[in-house]
Nucleic acid binder design. Structure first.
Lengths: 134, 134
DNA sequence: CACTGAAGTTGGACCGAGTCAAAGATAGCA
DNA sequence: TGCTATCTTTGACTCGGTCCAACTTCAGTG
């Protein structure tokens, strides 16, 4: 089975207890944790994990493309482990909860590109979730 | 002529020198200033403007829909005075420069809504500008 | 024109997310 | 088992942004 930890080992990462626990913390469907949430989850398994290690590891995972960084309107960054599937986000403007969704990705007309080299497109559906609507 | 300052007066805002100067600082095409940039521009016209007033005024303008808040990937917020025209953004991932662009806004299928009430759609074309490509 | 209360502004303390550097710990290899 | 490059920790620090209490100013009233 090809888990995140397996892929990291194949890349020659030293597999420490901390990295194992962080990798486990971020795995799942519709998971979009903040760094602090990752830290809390990791500490529940290994209490002495430090904040710096969480940030280091998250950045490294983003760097090798195993994690996607999503900046929420509140300015905090969230981390999305679902990188294989090209998807967009449905976000509650009140509580910040986020779901993965699929939608057509629009193209940018040539005369709108202003000489820029377009890399990818990020779409966020700003919405209100059923809980916050009540 | 219907300037931002005129519209504010019509709303019953007390038109102070500070607000006038801030309103002037954010006016223009393809303008997406950070709060600090607004502060710097305002101070070049009226040196004693305070940071708090800039934040207060920006938030009020966002609240009445005269300004759009855009959160950049670096976590800083930028302010876009172009609210009349429904547009999206083309952003350089290296230097953060931003342009207004137009593109088809995709819809979200009913079975992807998860009971959320969709308010609007934000599209960001992540790209590299000609300057940074060199 | 002076007075007054409400609205607006100020400076500085504060907050929280994130960064950094130096010292200490450890995985993985010989 | 011991060595060393790599990783982790701690705590200080940065930076965007918020908050608050004191002060100023505007518009309306007499």
């Amino acid at each position: 089975m090809d888990t995140l930890v397996d892929r990291l080992r194949q890349r020659g990462w030293r597999l420490t207890a901390q990295r194992r626990v962080i990798a486990e913390a971020i795995t799942g469907e519709h998971v979009h944790l903040t760094a602090d949430e990752v830290l809390a989850r990791a500490r529940s398994m290994l209490p002495e994990v430090s904040r710096a290690t969480v940030y280091n590891t998250l950045h490294e995972l983003v760097g090798i493309g195993e994690l996607r960084e999503v900046t929420h309107a509140d300015g905090r960054k969230r981390y999305d482990p679902n990188v294989a599937d090209n998807h967009h986000h449905l976000m509650c403007v009140d509580c910040g909860s986020m779901l993965d969704v699929h939608a057509d990705t629009p193209d940018l007309a040539d005369d709108e590109r202003h000489g820029f080299d377009v890399l990818d497109v990020e779409i966020t559906f700003r919405a209100r979730c059923p809980d916050c609507a009540a």
